[in-house]
Amino acid sequence: MARWCFFVCMAVTCLLIAGCGDDEPVKKIDLSNREEITVIKPPAALTYAYLPQYSHNVSYKRHHLLVEYLSRATGLTIRQVFPDTFDEHINMVGRGEIDISFSNPYAYVQIARRYGARAFARIVEGKGEINFRGQVICRADNHRIKTPADLKGKRLIAVDAYSAGGYLYPWDWILEQGLRKKDFLEIAFAPGPGGKQEKVVMGVYSGKYDVGLIRERTLPILANKIDLKQIRILAHSRWYPGWVYAARRGLDPDILAKIKKALLALDMKIPEQRKILEKAGFTGVVPASDADYEAVRRLAASVESRD
């Protein structure tokens, strides 16, 4: 009897010991002592903006090293700002909230036309390519689209109405195929702020849209998120000038000169700068002028007239 009692007591004790958890350290705080939070205005700085074809996060990742480089190189305080949409980007240039705009050629022709911004440099991609093009994509298993004529009656998504590679350039190709807006069941633009190129790919990948218009070099960015084999490239647009640096109207020429100098000084051969350039997604910066984008202006006019 005593032995049984002993075993029962031991079992209960073991269970109790096993059941006892470790106590966590507790920090005592007083929630009653409060203060009003005021929004701290960012310090005065030169603002740098990257047209939000991608998410702010991607934009930040791509350009924050470049911004830091420019600050160091020019001795100026430069802050990257993140407009949510192409429209906002254009509008912020117009309001003077963006001093240095890095945008696609289509957006540039808009801010140049509307707000007097002027191009002062353009990027070099890949092996010295200064132009880029757009792509028309669909799902690889969409067997209903075999020829451009098959796009009729389909749902189409593009990056933005002001996107060059993600709308203007491939839309030009579509128009050249004899198709018009009315021929599509639906034409949509990527919603929300940032990440627009990715959203177009994801819209096609998910099957919500049959056709997508994106900038070339977008698909590799999504290599870690989707199976790129499920995406089929239907066509490429013509080559057009690439992305452009522009200064808002009224920017101090000295500052602009410092910025331009620093940008043009970027060299892939310098490891530190190579890293900056790789992050930014281009291999160099070359001087540019507004005249370089006449072709784009004409394309835009042509597209608008055909719509």
């Binding site: 966590e24 350290p25 507790v26 920090k27 005592k28 705080i29 007083d30 929630l31 009653s32 002592n33 409060r34 203060e35 009003e36 939070i37």
Partner: peptide, 24 residues
């Protein structure tokens, strides 16, 4: 208003990806 003590009540240690603190 925001509780002033709450700001620094839970600091992420260097090298850590997150931190959980039990507060009383």
């Amino acid at each position: 208003g925001f509780p002033t003590m709450l700001k620094d009540a839970n600091q992420i240690p260097p090298g850590a990806s997150s931190h959980i603190q039990l507060l009383n």
